[in-house]
Design a protein around this nucleic acid. Structure first.
Lengths: 342, 342
DNA sequence: CTGAAAGCGCTTACAG
DNA sequence: CTGAAAGCGCTTACAG
């Protein structure tokens, strides 16, 4: 018993067989290489006895596979990407893949450099919620035959798999609901972001407003601001638009800043101002009044993302790319239902 | 221009120098090996020209280092570990380390198997918030000279670095604050968990109660229950203990279930029941009334964890192990301050 | 059915 | 100052 870890070579020598024989047996290819049952038993037993563990780095060097996936998101600590990261990892683990993650905080340069770094370390595939201007970087990766699944927001002109939700349709549903509740002046508060999911949400809003002959009122804030900044800007906006009687918030954290703003200026939800948020948050269930929200099916999104990526990794990248949208649900709570109507 | 990635060998051949020379130059050891400036320039320029990227797997195989760290937490999607994961990754990245994560959901067997898996893939070190009964597994890893930093909860008898907060002291401070506010019957609602941080929080509570001659009232729930289950058990508890006029919740999610329970039975916060939670949550700032909470210094915790681990990785494991507690802050809000006293 | 050998792309004593 | 060579621990054609 030395304390050096045993290698395939050691096993082969000890058992007087060839390295290749051992390797085949370990990898379950004994049958395919017509190795005798007896031989296989002998090797398997010895492996168990000495507690042999293959060296993954050597294996990776020889095969070019690392069994790891790079996950690049906006912020792994937030209430959307965090749970997604949890579910993605749990599913990937079942298929023997590890997840390496990085948060971009929407910084394109950081995202590009981490993309390159992960690629240099030979991840087998990527799951990316990209910041803007990532098109070229992602294309390069795909060109080098590394599979990429984009999620949450699309990348224009990048041919690869995408998984997202039906932003536009569900926002239309939400806005229609507000109108039904007799809210008249519905504002849309969002980020000045060209990202596809934000554009789709805006489209849904504008489309419904136009269809119902309402005048849109849109606030698009810079996205490099902190919570305090959003709050102040929303206060300002609501004061300048006193006739606004409902707000659709394009993300959950904007809604949280919005709630702080509304508290500050003292408007009553829902009778003086109706509220709907995109994406769920613990707060929304418990807030008084509870907040109507569009809830994305996180489990289903994660499952789809992982399934598609693993399929690409296994089978290469032949079939047509998939564009999948999993529908979200409008969960109606108190903040969008006028008490007088009840 | 073939499409095969250039290797050190290719460079050496092309430039008519030895592989070792190229390797030394790439790794900045040109000087140490007294390689001529001219030679160095020539190699560096060529590398740049062809866009050479070292193969990390080969490098890892040769050196035994992977520049990766295994992060094992309870749930990367929750409001404590998520932000911690964000900060840990950002700091590790600056020093050239990647993070591979896994969530245990407090399942010891899952945690042990992922610990083994990460170890087999040769992570350079571990950051672990361990479930119970991980002592032996972690010891084995440490014995094999892989550095481990434990955080959030300690592991009895495991000699390694630990980073946590001053659970006991800050809970004492919180309980003293409730007593000052003339709350009489303070209950402590927690999980039936032998984990150290939970024990310390309980100790802080019991100690203060005893010192002030108050009778402790403790509810310890099973920790394999869902939010609904917690809520129901808390309702039950509060109904059976109608004289309880304040509750200290040992975690933020228990507090959230508690708020649902309190809403259900219709008690008024803070005048009929005072509330304090351990750990911050978005909800607590915005809830009406806002909820007093013990806030852990996440930035400082993450920074300390990463610093200690990288130090161990670089310098080996010679100096005595560190046991570091970073103090938390009691943020007093409306839920623990009686209006009548104001 | 099994084995000898080359190869994956690095690092690092060692010799000169 | 620089180069030839062994080694890290696997996989996989290829030969028999």
């Amino acid at each position: 018993m030395t304390n050096k870890k045993p290698s395939i070579n050691d096993i082969a020598k000890h058992l007087n067989v060839a390295k290749s024989t051992v390797s085949f047996i370990i990898n379950g290819k004994a049958e395919a290489h017509r190795i005798s049952k007896k031989q296989e038993q002998r090797v398997l037993e010895y492996i168990k006895e000495i507690g042999y563990k293959p060296n993954y780095m050597a294996k990776s060097l020889a095969t070019g596979k690392t069994n790891s996936i790079g996950l690049i998101v906006e912020n792994i600590g937030d209430s959307f990407f965090g749970p997604i990261a949890l579910m993605i990892e749990e599913r990937a683990k079942k298929s023997g893949y590890r997840i390496i993650y990085s948060s971009t905080r929407n910084n394109t340069n950081d995202a590009l450099s981490v993309l390159q770094l992960f690629k240099d370390t030979h991840v087998d595939g990527f799951i990316i919620a990209p910041p803007v201007k990532m098109e070229e970087g992602v294309k390069k990766v795909i060109n080098d035959k590394v599979p990429v699944v984009i999620f949450d927001r699309m990348l224009e002109g990048v041919k690869t798999d995408y998984v997202g939700t039906n932003n536009r349709e569900v926002v239309e549903e939400a806005c229609a609901h507000l109108l039904e509740q007799k809210f008249k002046r519905i504002a849309f508060i969002s980020l000045a972001s060209p990202q596809s999911q934000m554009q789709e949400r805006l489209d849904g809003y504008l489309h419904t407003m136009r269809k119902k002959k309402q005048t849109p009122i849109v606030l698009q804030m810079r996205y490099d601001v902190d919570r305090e900044g959003y709050r102040n800007e929303i206060i300002h906006f609501l004061q300048n638009n006193p006739d606004v009687d409902a707000v659709f918030f394009a993300t959950n954290y904007l809604c949280i800043s919005g709630l702080e703003a509304i508290r500050e200026i003292g408007k009553k939800i829902p009778d003086e101002i109706g509220i709907i948020a995109f994406d769920e948050h613990d707060l929304f269930r418990l807030f008084s009044p509870s907040i109507t929200a569009i809830v994305q099916p996180l489990e289903q999104l994660s499952a789809t993302i992982v399934k598609i990526l693993l399929n690409r990794i296994d089978k290469g990248t032949i079939e047509p790319y998939q564009y999948i949208t999993v529908p979200s649900t409008l969960v109606i709570r108190e903040s969008s239902v006028k008490k007088k109507l009840k």
